[in-house]
Amino acid sequence: GVAEQLTPVLLDGLTEESLQLVSKLKDSSSSCAVDVSTVWWEAAGSKELCVVTACESSVSLWKPLASNGWEKIYTWQLREVPVIQIVPLPDTCNLVCIALGDLEIGEIRLLLYSSENDSFKQSLVRTGNIKAVLGLKDRRLVSSSRTVCEQQVEVVSLSETGRSRDGRTLMPPEETVLAFAEVEGLQDALVGTTAVNGVVVWNLRTGQLLKKMHVGYSYPASVCHQAYSDSGLLFVVLSHPHAKESESCGNPAFRVVAFNPKTARSTGVIFSSLPAGHTGRYLEGDVKDACAAAVLTSGAVAVWDLLLGRCTALLPPGPQGDWALVRWATTTACLLAGQRNGTVCLYQY
């Protein structure tokens, strides 16, 4: 369980100097890694940025060592329902949130350490047919769930000990909400993307559904990752797992779309595609600030500057196989890239 020493590498082509391997960890007990994330963890008076790795039946917390290696602190066992994803909670400490289920999310749990009885614990936050979940600032969690007749969109506040306090219901649209994103520059706003390629905007404070806008038919199944409010416009970062390649913009993994929420009109602003000569479609990815990273069908990881629409780094598949996961740490200075065998590489960006 102890990580390997760092091995700096230089990457080929456009990637030189932009991504540098800092350290690597390998969960030898992991059969099939499903997600990776980071969390601030405070123990014995020292607060450190730790790595969280998840496989289907367990979630492990890793602490950095002085030697650039990693030590596993604890593993939570989750044997009844498979883990689907880690749900990062921004600005929180000593709290890991996970989504579990079979084909779709059936429950959300918190993993934590209780100083009251000096033990690691887990607690159930909610159950249901959950379609989307996002950790919000100020230790809140928003999720959409669906029954045959109705959809519920709920924001839950979490206490320091993990127990959920009072929840607020947001007004649901008719269409199923499949992803959420917070809006930078507008504290009380939340956006979501729906199953029919719509973008919806809520007021988190009042629960009102403010606007429904359409992304357009050229990019089906768009998923929102991040939004920014500026100069009276709402800029939404969307990924396009099913986008068709076009001559004008190649094969866009991400697109920044400007919406005028007053009129619901929109226009594509910046396309983030692979540079000429590289192939691969978007499989999964992560966006933080103006940086986007994605795993591609080619098994590579690509990184873009969303403001320039330019691919700034490309990580080819490793000697042990394709990349499966890519996440930003709490800042875009650190990128985590994972393989299905449980290997996680930390890169400085």
Binding site: M171, L186, D188, A189, V201, N203, T206, G207, Q208, L209, L210, K211, S229, S231, G232, L233, L234, A258, F259, N260, P261, K262, T263, R265, S266, T267, V269
Partner: peptide, 23 residues
């Protein structure tokens, strides 16, 4: 993008839509 593409832009869109939307 120009205003003609997107229609009239309001810097206070969030407050204005919150005042108009059903609660």
């Amino acid at each position: 993008c120009s205003e003609s593409d997107l229609g009239p832009i309001s810097l206070n869109w969030f407050e204005e839509l919150s005042a108009e939307a059903p609660s």
